[in-house]
Design a protein around this nucleic acid. Sequence first.
DNA 1: GGCTTGACCACGC
DNA 2: CGCGTGGCCAAGC
Length: 107
Amino acid sequence: MARDLMAGDDFTSQVLEVVASIPSGRVMTYGDVAAVLGSRASRAVGSVLRLYGSDVPWWRVIRSGGLPPVGKADRALEHYRAESTPLRLGPDGSFLVDMRLARHAPD
DNA sequence: GGCTTGACCACGC
DNA sequence: CGCGTGGCCAAGC
C-alpha cells in the first residue's frame, strides 16, 4: 500500500514529519528533532536521514555546532545560500550555520 | 534476547 | 580548540 512516508507511527516516519515541518531558512539540530519526539536518540535521527533523507529537506537538520553532515557540506551550502540561511564563518574558514539566528524552536 | 553500529551531544583536559 | 570518554537510543544481525 502507499503509506510509505505518511502519518507517523514509527520513529522513522515521525522524524521525516518533523524535518518536513522546518521552515525555509531555519534549521534544527538532530537532538532537537529527537526532543520533539520525546526521545534523545539524536543518532537514530541521523540514521533515518541517511536512509530516507532524500525525500525531505535534510540540510535543515544539522549538528549542535552548526556543521552539516560530513561529505554533504557543499551540497547543504548551496541550499543555505538559496534560502538565505544565516551563516557564520568557522575557525578553519569553512561556513557554518549561525545557530543563534537560524535555530528553529519547536513548541 | 544481547552485541554492534551510528548524518549525535555534553563535558573534561 | 582538538581529542578522549561516557551517555543516549533506534535498528540490524
